[in-house]
Amino acid sequence: MVTTPLLPSDYLDLVSPLRAGADLRGRIEAVHPETGDAATVVIKPGRGWRGHTAGQYVRIGVDVDGRRLWRAYSLTSPTDRRDGRITITVKAIPDGKVSNHLVRRAAPGTLVHLDQPTGDFVLPQAKPAKVLYLTAGSGITPVMGMLRDTGFDDVVMVHCAPQPQDVIFRDELHRLAADRKLRLTEVHTATDGRLDIARLGELVPDWAERETWACGPAGLLDAAEEHWTEHGLRVRLHTERFRPRTVVTGGDGGEVTFSATGTTVDADGATPLLDVGEEAGVLMPSGCRIGICFGCVTPLKAGAVRDLRTGEITEAEPGVLIQTCVSAAAGPCDIER
């Protein structure tokens, strides 16, 4: 009543954006380079941060060129870090908007927006006797969070990167290996070629006995899932994907109306409606952006959309909800945002 039409929090945000009860934010405190194209970002989370479990990721909203963009990043800090800071480790991908911004331009002091941590790529309550971590490229990040958090008696790690200098956390991994906390095999794909999963047994003879956590590009994960399934061991394999498994790359798009905002734009048949809406300045809810969390579901009021993972067409009916991060326009449609 005193501050209508604003809320008292709108004024408090001016002085204390990280206070308890505020929308969850964080402040970037430092950015440490890891490799030529990767960096670790140290963030002081707001008072509302509930803490994470090793292996989970956090969604972070960053203003790039004045536009708020949300992306998911695995937490690389241990869960009991003394100073309460969290870290994410980001690899800049070519033309990547957020990753390049975080690696090359983010300045200490900048406020970012956060969600509570989430994800089920985590370790079980009961400690497995033998563990295998199978990672490639930036896929090492959730596993680093696990390594820093929980020790096991028998841990083997197979990590792929183009060259030695591309291995993120290389010094720390070698220290862990020297301390016998870890047996490490690096596969340098630029010289050794891609890891052939069928020959994993040559590197890790007892792989089948190991509870395995794998994270990396789609090719590696698809092959691993196939391999473990063939051996009837699929329950032993846990995977984390950074990108959606899309099969559809084309098809007719259409005119998309965001009726709540009153915006209409043309969309092709391959761009997720989440991206289309964001590009048009519509406030789109989002989460993982790869079709697993359902944080982006939105009513489809009219028209039809195509699921980019399966090619399946969904048509509007009362009550039909779609995941905008993995759906593209299949003709004209109306999204209730």
Partner: peptide
Amino acid sequence: WDWMRDPKIHSTT
């Protein structure tokens, strides 16, 4: 200012 996608500075909010 909708293009900023800041829910606090948006025509719908």
